[in-house]
Design a protein around this nucleic acid. Structure first.
Lengths: 223, 223
DNA sequence: ACAAAATGATAGTAATACTATTATATTTGC
DNA sequence: GCAAATATAATAGTATTACTATCATTTTGT
């Protein structure tokens, strides 16, 4: 996929960074190594000091790119959803049949991320794992309403809207397209988490994928 | 409901506390006021020092009841799910029709909590709000597998199993009873969160409840 | 070559998340 | 009713976190 748009850039809300990390080598290293370190330590134990140490840079330098680790997480997850949106729009754009379009969308959104490499400094496979483990923490905060007003969640919201619209195209009479779309996005992350840590709670696992479950669920809901 | 079993006790895993908070006045105050303070400050800003101040007790005394605030959260959420399980089993026990049983279960699990007062020192309405906002943080950690092995999530898992079995009773051919049950429990919390903070992402709101959406979703899925 | 910008080094602060110790209440068992 | 046991309070102390501020050094663009 990366050969098609070599200069593609995902437009994350500029309030999420102090200085654009795409604008320098250090910024890119913060992002790429930050992804790996959050994955390794978990978000709670992750600190800028540790990241500075890992990339051989000074803690104070990292603060010139991101105000704090919460905004860093918002940046990474926004980037992830922007990347998903790009894949979704690109792949489904030319599909004429609404159900085929929606099915393709579900597959993209619920699949385990494979190597992509469109953005050399971002390891999308690890980023996907971070999103599964940490995305909820980015909005389950006391500051959510203000941050929402600041536009920090626009990409995610737009993505839910897109799915919602696809659902309406398939069945204009269905009463809960938004609820179903939001259940799909959030539920997909949840099923991936369960298959890793609570396998007894779901059929999703080695032989059945979250994609199959959600495809079935949505087909039944809209028929 | 509280008049039926005045001496009912919810059996939370004893590894979650150092000293049983039900065993003393101070313990009960830690729980009751702790619920209010977490709701007020959010889990990130909540500390034992602040709670000690609020209840006029010493920080060090709180540590004699709970190792840390993470275990305190696990205790509170376990208690909540135990309470939900009790309501669920009690209410659905005598229902002979599987679909009626499941529908009743869905209503209990997705409803907004109203005053109960079965347990005088626990404000279940506020606790329900805490669960919506903070439950995910209790398991989205690096320690989840060990804590799962310790049995800290048994009540929640048993609850998912119960729903899963109800689903199987309604439609034995349905392939994803566990996935659907876990989607329901987690999705219900999520829809409640969305209607509060991201109302544009869901139809659930003042005129439509999460209960209606999930009842419809599950009926469609199992027919 | 020079100024400006970026980065690094160091230091400092208030708060967090505890642990340890000792003192004072309170309860209970006889 | 009193001593012993238990519970709670008070105080102090530690390492870490999450920053901010200042100044030095390196890199860069023209």
């Amino acid at each position: 996929m990366h050969r098609l748009f070599p200069s593609l850039r995902i437009d994350v809300n500029s309030g999420l960074y102090v200085k654009d990390p795409e604008s320098s080598d250090l910024g890119k290293r913060i992002v790429s190594e930050g992804i790996l370190l959050i994955h390794e330590l978990g978000f709670e134990s992750f600190t800028f000091k540790k990241l500075g140490l890992k990339i051989g840079s000074n803690e104070s330098s990292l603060y010139r790119y991101f105000e704090n680790k919460h905004k860093f997480l918002l940046y990474l997850t926004s980037w992830y959803w922007g990347w998903m949106e790009y894949k979704l729009v690109f792949t489904t754009h030319s599909l004429p049949d609404p159900m085929e379009k929606l099915s393709t969308a579900i597959q993209i959104l619920t699949a385990t991320t494979e190597e992509d490499g469109a953005f050399t400094h971002v390891n999308e496979v690890v980023l996907n794992k971070i999103v599964i483990n940490e995305f909820s923490k980015s909005y389950l905060t006391k500051e959510v309403d203000e941050e929402n007003r600041n536009g920090y969640f626009v990409i995610y919201k737009r993505l839910v809207s897109r799915i919602s619209e696809m659902i309406q195209q398939v069945n204009p009479d269905y009463q809960y397209p938004g609820a179903l779309a939001s259940t799909l996005l959030e539920g997909a992350l949840h099923q991936h988490y369960l298959k890793e840590h609570f396998p007894q709670l779901t059929e999703c696992g080695s032989s059945t994928s979250p994609a199959e479950y959600f495809l079935d669920l949505i087909q039944r809901s809209l028929s």
